[in-house]
Computed example of a mutant assay.
Amino acid sequence: MSLSPEYFEHMFNASDDPWSFRTRWYEKRKRELTLASLPHQRYQRVFEPACANGELSALLAGRCDSLLCQDLNQTAVKLARSRLREYGNVRVEHGRIPEDWPTGRFDLIVLSEVGYFLNAAEWQQVIEQTLLSLSPEGGIMACHWLHAIEGCTQDGRQAHASLERHLPLHRLVRHQEPDFLLEYWSRQATSIDLGETTQ
């Protein structure tokens, strides 16, 4: 990783919400945009690496049958487990990508605010593992901050440029603002089933 595990240990030792996921309107709005950009009302199996304290995870839990969350920091794992304890369809594990990539297929893989914490070679491996793990009708949600982060070897633009170069998928959603870029990639060329009814 471009940033060591000690970096995240320091962050979580200083605060149980080091990026103000719970309190900043920017973060709340970005989560809601992320959920609104998912073309399917419900997914069967979802993987969210780098889940931090589980704020986005709590929203994803309501849109799927099974959610696997993962983080390399033990404090983040503990916080996420506490945040998500009411959801019986969620499992939170300790692990770091790309080394601890889970087995099985997923209908949705959420790569949110994680690409720039990996070096280019690790990010390439994550992209390859994502493709191998994606179900035939699966999709990838990627969302990243676009400004430089001290200590990181790549930024959000570079992370998304790598996705564009290496994902042989259909990009169904691209939403860019001055601060972040959000994209949804799918194995399927169509986005929404117009005949689907709300649950």
Rank of each mutant, 00 (worst) to 15 (best):
M1P: 10
S2D: 05
P5M: 03
Y7G: 00
F8P: 00
M11A: 15
S15I: 09
D17W: 07
W19G: 08
F21D: 13
T23K: 14
W25L: 14
Y26M: 07
E27I: 08
R31S: 11
R31W: 12
L33V: 12
L35P: 07
L38R: 12
P39I: 10
Q44T: 14
Q44R: 15
F47T: 06
G54E: 04
G62F: 08
D65T: 11
S66I: 02
N73L: 03
A76T: 04
K78R: 09
A80R: 02
V90E: 10
R91I: 07
R91D: 11
G95M: 07
G95H: 08
E99Y: 04
D100M: 03
G104H: 05
R105M: 11
R105V: 04
F106R: 06
I109R: 02
L111V: 01
V114C: 00
G115E: 01
G115P: 01
F117K: 02
N119A: 08
A120G: 06
W123F: 14
I127D: 08
L134W: 11
P136H: 06
E137A: 10
M141I: 11
I149G: 00
E150C: 01
E150N: 06
C152D: 04
T153S: 14
G156T: 05
R157V: 05
R157Q: 13
A161K: 09
L167K: 01
P168S: 00
H170W: 10
L172E: 06
V173W: 04
R174Y: 05
R174E: 14
H175C: 05
Q176R: 14
F180L: 10
L182A: 01
E183Q: 12
E183Y: 00
Y184S: 01
Y184W: 09
Q188F: 00
Q188E: 13
T190F: 09
S191A: 15
E196S: 13
